[in-house]
C-alpha cells in the first residue's frame, strides 16, 4: 500500500458516498445516469467475487463490501425508491455498445483464462467506460448540478491517483499490471474535458453548463 493508492481509494469512497448522500438527502436523482450506476454495480460485482474465495486484508474486504453495498443502494434509489425523479429521457446511452465489446475483449485479452480472471478483466475494461452514459447525459442536458460535478471529480481523480500508484509500484516493487494500466489510462483520459470544465468553471464558483 502507498499513499497514492490509499488516497485513490479514499477519493473513490468519497465519490460513492457523495453521490449516495446527494440522492438520499435531496430525494432526487435528477441529472444522474442510472445506466452508469448499474454499470458500476456490475463492475464491483464482477471484480469482487474474490470476496468469496480469498482474504487479503480487513481493509480490502471492508472497502469491497462498502463499494458493493453503496452501489446497489444507489441503483435501488434510482430505479425503485426515487424512480419518479429519474430522468430517463436524457439517460439514453446504448450500454450494449459498451458491454458487448468489453465482454468480447475480456475473453481475448486477459492474464488467465479462468472464470474469476475473465470476470476481473471484464470489470476492469467496463470500469474504464462506465462513466460514458453519465457524461453523455450531461452533454444532452447541457448542465450538471454542482454536487454532481464534485462526485465526478473525485471519481476521475481516484483512477488518476491509481496511475501514479502503478508508477510507484513498478519503481519500488517491480509490479505492473498492463491490463489495469491501459484501462486506467483510457478511463482517466475520458475525464480530461470534464476536469478542464471543473477547474475552469466549478472551482470558480460558476455552474457547469456546456454550450448546448
Amino acid at each position: 500500500m502507498n499513499i497514492f493508492r490509499l488516497t485513490g481509494d479514499l477519493s473513490h469512497l468519497a465519490a460513492i458516498i457523495i453521490l449516495l448522500l446527494k440522492i438520499w438527502k435531496s430525494r432526487s436523482c435528477a441529472g444522474i445516469s442510472g445506466k452508469s450506476q448499474v454499470l458500476f454495480a456490475l463492475v464491483f460485482t464482477t471484480r469482487y467475487l474474490d470476496l468469496l474465495t480469498s482474504f487479503i486484508s480487513l481493509y480490502n474486504t471492508t472497502m469491497k463490501v462498502i463499494y458493493i453495498g453503496c452501489s446497489y443502494a444507489t441503483v435501488y434509489l434510482i430505479y425503485m425508491k426515487l424512480k419518479a425523479t429519474y430522468d430517463g429521457n436524457h439517460d439514453t446511452f446504448r450500454v450494449e455498445f459498451l458491454i458487448v465489446p468489453v465482454g468480447g475483449l475480456a475473453f481475448l485479452v486477459n492474464h488467465d483464462f479462468s472464470p474469476l480472471e475473465i470476470l476481473w478483466t471484464f470489470s476492469i475494461y467496463l470500469e474504464s467506460v462506465a462513466i460514458l452514459p453519465q457524461l453523455f447525459m450531461i452533454s444532452k442536458t447541457g448542465e450538471a448540478e454542482t454536487i454532481t460535478t464534485h462526485y465526478l471529480f473525485f471519481l476521475g481523480l481516484y483512477r488518476a491517483l491509481y496511475l501514479i500508484n502503478w508508477i510507484w509500484r513498478f519503481y519500488f516493487e517491480g509490479f505492473f499490471d498492463m491490463i489495469a494500466i491501459v484501462a486506467g489510462v483510457v478511463q482517466t483520459i475520458l475525464y480530461c474535458d470534464f476536469f478542464y470544465l471543473y477547474v475552469t468553471k466549478v472551482l470558480k464558483g460558476k455552474k457547469l453548463s456546456l454550450p448546448a
Binding site: R5, D9, H12, D50, T53, S54, F55, I56, N60, M63, K64, Y67, H111, D112, L116, E117, W120, Y162, N165, D177, A180
Partner: peptide, 10 residues
C-alpha cells in the same frame, strides 16, 4: 498469487 486471486488492489 494471493489465495485464489492475483489482485490485491480494489
Amino acid at each position: 498469487v494471493i489465495g485464489q486471486t492475483r489482485h490485491d488492489e480494489l
